[in-house]
């Protein structure tokens, strides 16, 4: 009985850990299929989503888009932009109201974001999952060279 109880606790902890890991890795970076690159660094992602850069290292123009909210949006911002949704919105408001940028286009749903990315050259976004049939190119996120 005691062993069963321990096993239950272990299973519960494992499930929780798996859930947290799944949440942390839940975001897939997606790009328009015509995009030449297949990998991107976290630094490039951050620079693109903070507006510091509008090009990939190969020189091609990139058009970042976002979700309006939800877990995937929060996970993406925390993991790659290192900002909360509030900080992200504030930074872009500052850029917009000082004439230094235009806010990335934001979508209510992942389906709408995927559709836009699939049909817009240079578009870059993120979703919680991709299924066969989605006409986007998943990008690998690699650590930068040391």
């Amino acid at each position: 009985m005691r062993t069963l109880g321990k096993t239950r606790w272990l299973l519960l902890l494992l499930a929780l850990a798996a859930h947290r890991a799944a949440r942390a890795q839940d975001v897939i970076i997606v790009a328009n299929p015509e995009m030449r690159v297949s990998v991107i660094t976290p630094e490039d992602l951050r620079a693109i989503y903070t507006g510091a850069r509008s090009q990939l290292p190969d020189g091609s123009h990139v058009l970042p888009v976002t979700l309006k909210g939800g877990p995937a949006h929060e996970v993406f911002l925390m993991n790659y932009v290192k900002e909360t949704p509030d900080q992200f919105r504030t930074a872009w408001r500052k850029a917009v109201f000082t004439g230094q940028g235009a806010m990335p286009r934001a979508f209510e749903s992942e389906a709408a974001l995927l559709q836009f990315v699939a049909s817009t050259p240079g578009a870059l976004g993120y979703v919680s999952r991709v299924v066969p049939g989605d006409k986007v190119k998943p990008l690998s996120v690699l650590p930068p060279p040391h």
């Binding site: 504030t90 930074a91 408001r93 500052k94 109201f97 000082t98 230094q100």
Partner: peptide, 9 residues
């Protein structure tokens, strides 16, 4: 200086 009028930020 360039954003001092944007109270919201």
């Amino acid at each position: 200086n360039d954003s001092q009028d944007v109270d919201a930020v």
